[in-house]
Each structure stands twice: as C-alpha cells, then as structure tokens.
C-alpha cells in the first residue's frame, strides 16, 4: 500500500500517512516498531522510484531528459521489483510473522476533493509530457482557486522558495566543481554513495550535468534513498514522525542498504550483458 501510494502521490506525502499508521499498528500488535517504521520508509522510497512523479529526483530526470512516462516506468520496474523482493524478505525474516487483525475504522475522505486532485495530477502529467509547464501550472491554480481556494492561501510558499533556492545553489555548485563525466555502473555507485552525504535530490542536480545516461542516474539516486537518514527526505520524515532514533534507523537500514547495492549492481550488469 505504501509503495503504491508513494508511486502515485510522491514518497514524502505517503510517509505522513504510513509512518503514524505503522507506529499505531506496532503498538496494537506488539510488533517491532523500529522494523515496521524502517519497512514503510523503505517501501515509500522503493514505490516512488517507479514513476517520474514519485519523488523529486525522478521529476528532475524526467524533465531534463524528456523521458516518456511509460518508458521511465518500464525501465525502472525491474529494479523496483528487485528492491521490493528484498524488502519483503527482510520483513518476513525479521518479524517472522504476518500480523493480521480487525481493520481499524477508515478515515473520512473528502471524496470530491480527492477525485479532483487525482484528475489534476493526471492532467499535469499529460501537460508536462507535452512540455506545457506554464499551462499545467495555470490549470492547477485555476482549479485550486475554484474548488478549494483555502489551499492557495495556506500553501507553504517559503518551502517552495527553499527548494527553488536549493536547486539554484546546487546547479551553481555543479558548474563550478570539476566532476569527471560518469556512466553506467560507476554512475550508479557514485550517485548512491553521494546521496548518503548530500541527499539524493542534490546528488541528482549535481550529477545530471555530468552524464548523458538518465537510467543509471535514476537507479543510483533512488538506490541512494534506501540508505542513511540523509539519503532521502522521506527517511528524515520517517525519523521525525516516529519514536525511532537516527541511530536505531541506521542500525536497521545500513546492512540492508549493502544488500540493495550489491543486488542492484548485479542486476544492472546482468541487464547490460
């Protein structure tokens, strides 16, 4: 469920629902809270890797290389499947049981708003595929103003400005640094490791001007999100929303990250032979 939600509406947004639910389920079922939180965090990152709109690094790659939506999904699918299988194996190996019980009552959704938001998301994807970015923004603003004007007033413009400045900063840094041009396996390794130090969105910005290959970059930066708290914004949100400490998170994630890295490299080599 977390993977599907992240693929559809972005990993960070999915985390706001999945992590509190994981914490509550762990409390009710007596499961290991740390492993459940780590599990849903990794699931959000894995699921978001599948689609161009799943996370910010994919959006950057999608925009820069103008990759067709379904080509992106088709190309990332084997890696997402591999990572999902590793995650499922980890969950079963670590908990040893499948927790099932009576489902909690559902949340009352504003169905009209939810349907309009989904329609707007689909329209935005179509507009952006055709390079009509201004039109996509205009339609979004008009629909939001007509349906839920409060959204425009409450929108976090400072956060948007922060991201815009971050993008400008890393673009400027990228043009100043002497980074050799990278490709293939080397690009995947550098992107995954660099993400552990500066996070995967800045790593994407930094490396996107140093390579002509979008797929190894997408694999590397999404793989990078499966590591440390710094690796992905979703990891940071996971720790902030749960009682799991950074140390506990790393204790669970780092051994698993090494498995993800070796399995990914093996799959990439096998796919290029």
């Amino acid at each position: 469920m977390t993977e599907a939600a992240a693929a559809l509406m972005m990993n960070d947004a999915a985390m706001f629902i999945a992590v509190p639910l994981a914490v509550a389920v762990a409390r009710v079922s007596g499961s290991d809270e740390k492993k459940l939180v780590v599990g849903v965090t990794l699931a959000a990152n894995i699921g978001s890797s599948l689609t161009p709109n799943g996370n910010p690094q994919n959006i950057i790659i999608w925009m820069k290389w103008r990759v067709a939506y379904w080509v992106f999904v088709y190309s990332m699918a084997p890696y997402v499947l591999l990572w999902s299988l590793i995650l499922v194996a980890y969950i079963f190996a670590s908990s040893g049981k499948y927790v099932a019980g009576e489902a909690p009552p559902p949340i009352s959704l504003r169905k009209r708003v939810a349907l309009i938001a989904l329609g707007l998301l689909a329209a935005n994807i179509v507009f952006v595929e055709k390079g009509l970015w201004i039109e996509a923004l205009a339609v979004s603003l008009i629909v939001a103003a007509a349906v839920e004007p409060k959204v425009l007033l409450k929108f976090d413009y400072m956060l948007l400005a922060t991201f815009a400045l971050m993008f400008l900063f890393f673009n400027a840094i990228s043009s100043l640094l002497i980074v050799p041009s990278l490709r293939g396996l080397g690009l995947i390794v550098v992107a995954a490791l660099l993400s552990q130090v500066i996070s995967n969105v800045p790593a994407t910005l930094l490396l996107s001007s140093r390579t002509l290959e979008w797929l190894p970059l997408a694999i590397g930066v999404n793989l990078g999100g499966l590591g440390t708290v710094i690796g992905s914004m979703a990891n940071f949100i996971g720790v902030r929303l749960s009682p799991v400490t950074v140390e506990e998170f790393h204790k669970c994630v780092i051994p698993l990250f090494l498995v993800f890295v070796f399995a990914t490299l093996a799959l990439y080599v096998a796919s290029t032979i």
Binding site: F16, I107, S108, D156
Partner: peptide
Amino acid sequence: KVRDGSWSIVPDYALTEELRRRVV
C-alpha cells in the same frame, strides 16, 4: 468525530496541515 452513515473517522484537516508543515 465519526461520520454518520459511513462510520469513518473525521479528521481535523487544518490541524493536520499545521502538523505536517512543522515536520518538514
């Protein structure tokens, strides 16, 4: 709050938004 008919939990959307903003 429980919605009559759908028997689902009604969230406080304004408070939810405020909290999510603080996390980021």
